[in-house]
Nucleic acid binder design. Structure first.
Lengths: 206, 206
DNA sequence: TAGATTGTTAATCGATTAACAATC
DNA sequence: TAGATTGTTAATCGATTAACAATC
């Protein structure tokens, strides 16, 4: 596990491996080859082997990868072997929908705080979480040790929310608002914009 | 506009350009340079010029790009100059949330049909759309001319829904379920999985 | 042992960036 | 005209794929 810079493409594939490995584990499969994985995930087997080899020698020649062991390793790499606390701002339709993934995320990640700027929303309960006003953000996030923030507010407010997250010392942001946000270089931002996704799909229609 | 194969990366950036151009248009800005765009969108100006040049000469040397004209052109390229009908399967929390984007999508794309396998959901009304049972899919989709399908069902059912979409002659699918689906090569699939997105973010925590 | 499959190097492929002549 | 900015070629950078010795 050298301090080599791992490309973003590699990091993005790890959760996909993990997802399928979990499925295999549930089906009591004990071993899997890069060939099998590639077939199932529409990826080149050599790429999968190379991705994993960046982090260590996890497989056995002639056999493949032990599923339990590989799951454990990928979880370590992704830092999912600890509990990671997540906060969400924007208790609209999308925000509510995401809160319901808490069950799916299980141990690793959990939305532990929910904020909304509209006073009317304050106090509402969504999936066991009480909607809090924005001015509680700093204290609540510090207390709960939140490290990742999710933005599900309208585009016009996304930058403000990002600023507030940054002021609270957030380390990474997942932004669902359809706008590019500016943050300091040490804060990682990923985008999850449904509308651009749909629009790029349209290109491929005949 | 030669029949050169355009890379996926380019196609994915076009909606992002479009989004910001629309914002500029609303603010009555008339012209923009690749420099300005690059700064705002965190992209290299040369890349933006190159992306656009794949499709034609849209700019003016010494001036930049006329915003109205460029919007029109990008909309043509993405085939957003027509109405594109979209169907959604899975009227859960996420599905409902997405239905509310109809207003945002405005002219170009519209969710026009909503299906769910659970009989209990049938007949429910979400954002002016009635939830229909799966056995109505073929006839409704043919009648409405649906070309793109969205999947927001649990992972275990996603492949079945994809199969049904394919049987209805769907051309492209946006899959929110956390699983890789198999479709014929002429059907385009994009993924929008919130959980893998969050998990890859975790990697970048210190 | 024979067959299978890894880890890794080398080859290929593709995407991004720099540079600059053309020109508004 | 002088300054700005495009479109495009060439250079760079990075990611994917092929190939194969090592070995279970």
């Amino acid at each position: 596990m050298k301090t080599q810079k791992i490309s973003e493409a590699v990091v993005r594939r790890l959760p996909i491996y993990l997802r399928y490995l979990n499925e295999l584990q549930m089906n009591n499969v004990s071993t899997v080859s890069s060939q099998d994985l590639g077939q199932k995930l529409d990826l080149n087997p050599a790429q999968i082997r190379k991705d994993l080899a960046y982090f260590g020698e996890f497989g056995k020649k002639g056999i493949g990868y032990d599923i339990n062991y590989l799951i454990e390793k990928i979880r370590q790499i992704l830092k999912l072997d600890r509990h990671i606390q997540v906060a969400l701002v924007g208790a609209g339709n999308l925000g509510r929908a995401l809160c319901n993934y808490n069950t799916y995320l299980r141990n690793d990640m959990k939305i532990v705080a929910l904020f909304d700027a509209m006073p009317a929303k304050t106090g509402e309960v969504i999936n066991n979480l009480v909607v809090l006003p924005m001015d509680k953000m700093k204290s609540v996030m510090t207390e709960l040790g939140v490290r990742i923030g999710i933005i599900t507010v309208p585009a016009a407010e996304a930058q403000n929310v990002a600023n507030e997250f940054v002021a609270c010392g957030i380390e990474a942001i997942l932004n669902f608002a359809p706008v590019i946000i500016k943050v300091p270089p040490d804060v990682r931002v990923h985008y999850a914009d449904f509308t651009t996704e749909l629009q790029s799909l349209a290109y491929y229609l005949d």
